[in-house]
Write a protein that binds this DNA or RNA. Structure first.
Lengths: 105, 105
DNA sequence: CCGTTAATTAACTTGACGGTTAATTAACGA
DNA sequence: TCGTTAATTAACCGTCAAGTTAATTAACGG
């Protein structure tokens, strides 16, 4: 099973709309912090904090090159998340199957 | 695309370990509140609050029958969640494919 | 060398969250 | 009828999260 603490960090990270938006933008390519800050009408430290949360959940990676920090998406935990969700949808589908059989019978 | 507000409610609801545990237990069958309360060494009002959050995210349903409330899991939003996650894993898989082709070439 | 810029850290404020106890509502049952 | 039980609501408390501004670090460039 998936580590429960890890799972909590992932859900907590994705509960915030700004962070979900950042993740979505990152699928279109890596970004630097100074681009994100004006986009969200938010101070640079606020963005830094959001990135910390995302990084702790291992949903992103930061690479510092001289002064500039580039932010990349990290796919591993999206897979973790998918696995977790899948266990529930599978469960439900099997229930539906049972129900269907029951009705047919 | 999936409603952003709905998505926030779902992630927020699943960010708490007690609520994830409740959801997990509900897959084994419906429950009543008075069973949950002692199990988590938690007051009944605390459980009520957790159920409110889960219900607002439409992850569970409550059915009151005379004095007792039975709690059921509601699968619709697990599907919503799966859809959302899938868009990211799909994105990533396509990136991997591109990378693979690039390496091979 | 010095001013500017990118990013983080520190310190603070505000509001939401997770828990509590006490009070309330409503239904059961001896 | 009246005490008990299931559940929720109300009011409250401590902690954490999300934002701010100010200060700090480090690298760029004229």
């Amino acid at each position: 099973m998936v580590n429960n603490e890890t799972l909590g960090a992932i859900f907590k990270a994705l509960a915030d709309p700004t962070r979900r938006s950042i993740v979505e933008r990152l699928t279109k390519g890596p970004l630097s912090v100074d681009v994100l800050s004006p986009y969200y009408n938010m101070s640079a430290p606020a963005i830094t904090k959001h990135l910390n949360v995302l990084e702790q959940a291992a949903l992103i990676k930061r690479v510092k090159q001289s002064r500039n920090v580039t932010v990349y998406i990290d796919p591993t935990h999206f897979a973790t998340l998918e696995t977790w969700v899948a266990t529930y949808t599978k469960f439900w589908n099997s229930k539906l199957d049972q129900l269907e059989k029951h009705i047919i019978k």
